[in-house]
């Protein structure tokens, strides 16, 4: 199976094709509904984001708490369509990889093609299994949002599937 690294190189990103399965390693940021809303509002007000997302990957997740002795609790993907309203603004700033589950709207797909980005999915509900590939967790910002705060994960061989590639080919359209 193909291995990729985050932050992703242009060469790796362009090589991913719809339906292709990968094992991802490296660093990604987490953000879901509430963090996206805050970032979007900052951009609307002409302010800077708390993280530099150029070239980065964002995983749509809100982990469960870690049991003692664990790096993290179960942390499977959440439904991506809820981030559709916010995603094009982040893609315009250079976000390269979105990771979640489920279909995306046409506005997001158009923006992905324009900005050369990919959308990868993890298996929804495989949260305990996915947690095994998270090696380190750092809180980055929005601590008050709890599980919805922005974290940085170090991941190793995280099992993902290319759902929409940089040419806009979509696994959900059959």
């Amino acid at each position: 199976m193909k291995r990729i690294n985050f932050p992703i190189t242009d060469e790796q990103l362009l090589s991913l094709s719809c339906g292709e399965r990968v094992l991802a390693s490296g660093y990604l940021y987490t953000a879901r509904d509430a963090a996206h809303k805050r970032m979007y509002e900052l951009l609307q007000n002409g302010e800077k984001l708390p993280i530099d997302i150029k070239g980065q990957a964002i995983y749509y997740v809100g982990a469960a708490p870690a049991k003692p002795g664990y790096v993290i609790g179960p942390c499977g993907p959440t439904s991506s369509y809820r981030m559709d309203k916010y995603a094009p603004s982040l893609l315009d700033l250079g976000l390269k990889v979105m990771i979640g589950k489920g279909a995306r709207g046409q506005d997001v797909i158009d923006s992905m093609i324009k900005n050369q980005a990919v959308y990868l999915i993890a298996v929804g509900g495989a949260a305990a299994l996915i947690a095994k590939s998270i090696k380190k967790v750092d809180l980055i910002c929005y601590e008050d949002l709890g599980t919805e705060a922005i974290y940085r994960y170090e991941v190793e061989d995280m099992p993902l599937i290319t759902a929409i590639d940089s040419k806009g080919r979509n696994i959900y359209v059959r």
């Binding site: 664990y70 179960p74 959440t78 298996v123 509900g125 949260a127 305990a128 599980t147 099992p159 599937i161």
Partner: peptide, 28 residues
């Protein structure tokens, strides 16, 4: 094969959750 593999991930996941007494999904 992809459908089989997804179901395997789910089955393995549910076994890990039961063995380790952790939630099977982060959305509890």
């Amino acid at each position: 094969q992809l459908a089989k593999d997804v179901l395997t991930q789910i089955i393995d996941n549910d076994k890990i959750a039961a063995d380790e007494q952790i939630p099977m999904c982060q959305d509890t």
